[in-house]
Design a protein around this nucleic acid. Sequence first.
DNA 1: TCTGGGGTCCTAGGACCC
DNA 2: TCTGGGGTCCTAGGACCC
Length: 419
Amino acid sequence: MFALVDCNNFYVSCERVFRPDLIGKPVVVLSNNDGCVIARSNEAKALGIPMGAPAFKYEKLFNEQGVEVFSANFPLYGDMSHRVMSILSEYSPDIEIYSIDEAFLKFSGFQHIPVYAHCKTMQEQVNKWTGIPISIGIADTKALAKVANRIAKKFPHETGGVYWIDTDTKRIKALKWLGIEDVWGIGRQHSRRLLAMGIKTAYDFTQLPDVWVKKHMSIMGLRLKHELLGIPSFDLETPAPRQSIATTRTFESLYTDFEQLRERIATFAVMCAEKLRKQNSCCAALTVFILTDRFREDLPQYGKSITIQLPFATNSSIELTKFAIQALQQIFKAGLHYKKAGVIVHDITPAHIYQATLFETRNSKHLPLMLAIDKINARFGQQKIRLASQDLQRVWKMKQARLSPRYTTDINDIIIIKV
DNA sequence: TCTGGGGTCCTAGGACCC
DNA sequence: TCTGGGGTCCTAGGACCC
C-alpha cells in the first residue's frame, strides 16, 4: 500500500507559518524574476488567479483584492520541506521524496498497524511541529494514491484531508470523478487528444485497449493505465545521482548580438561548473540551447539545441566555458531576437574517478585554481572572481521585489518575537 | 515593459557494427 | 526481378512532472 503526502499550497503555507496574520487571506508566490504565479492560497484560487499567471497581467487584481504577493524564497521552502520530510520518514522506513512538497510512503508489513489512524497521526504531527498543513491519499498503487490525495484536498471537510481508496467501488467512483486532464502523467497534449476521442475521465482511460495506449502513449502510459486499475506498476524510486544539471534563464530583454549571448552562455557554463564542484562531480557532455521569444508572434521563431561530447570529464569553469561557446557558435543564427538560453551538463561522474585520455589536453592546474576561486567567492560573495569571458560590469540580480526573510536559514533573518 | 527553472523518461531515426 | 538479419549507440525532440 502507498500513501501520497502533499503539502497544501506549499510555498504559501511556508510564508504563513511566519505570518499567521495571512491565514484566510489571498496569498500568491511568484516565480524567479517575479515572473508568474507559482503558488496560490485557496482564497487566491477562488479569485480566479490561474497557476502560471503572468504577474504583470494580474497586478491590478492583486491591488484591488488585497492579494498578498511574495517573491519566491527557495532557501526558506527548502528548509521547511526538509523538516516535513524528516517527520514523514518516522512513519515508514520506505519513503520516496518525490518533490519539494510531496512524498510517497510505502506501507509493507503494516498488516497489524491501522494505516488510516497512522496517517491521521502523521498529519497532526506535521502540522503541530512545522505549521504546514498536509493532505494524504492512500491506495494500492502510486497513481491511485495520487487520485486519493486529490480527493482529500478537494473535500477537506468530508475527508479531514486523509482519503483511502480501500475498495474497488471507491476506486471506480474516484476514477469516474477525476477528469482526464487531472490524471497524474497525462499532460496537456495527451488530454487534448483523449478528450477529442470522447475520453473524459480517468475511468474512460482505463477502458481503452492496452495496444492503443502503448502505441500512442508509450510504455509509461500503459503502466499508468494498469496502476489506475489497481495493478502496481510503479515502485518507490530510490534516489539516484543526478543525470543532468542545468542553468537556464529568460533574459530581461531580447538579445540580437552574438556577443551578448556568448557572455550569458559563458556565465551559465561557469554556474554549471560551480554546481558540479559543489557535489564533487565532473561532466563529460554538455548541451547548449537558445530560444527566441515565443510570446512575440510578430518576430520569426527559432529554437535549437546542441549536445557535444567532451574529450574528457571536467568540472573546470574554464574548460566548460570554452566548450559551451564552441557549441553556441554552431547553433547561433544572426538576425534573430533571443529571449532565453541555457547550459545543461550531463554524463556526470564522481570527480575522483577520472578517465585520462591518451593525448592529454586538460590543464591540471585548473583544479587548484577552481578550488581557490570557490573559496574566495564563498567568502566575499558570489561571482567576485569571474572569467574574463563573463561580463565583469554586470551585477547579476534577479528581480525579487517582495522577498520574505530567510527565517530558518540565516541568523540575521531570525524571527523577532518581541523587541 | 513585464510571461520561471530544473528535472525525468521515451521514441524515432541515423550511423555504425558484425 | 532479385539485393540479410540482428544488433548498439547517439541525438534531437517531445511529453511529462513539480
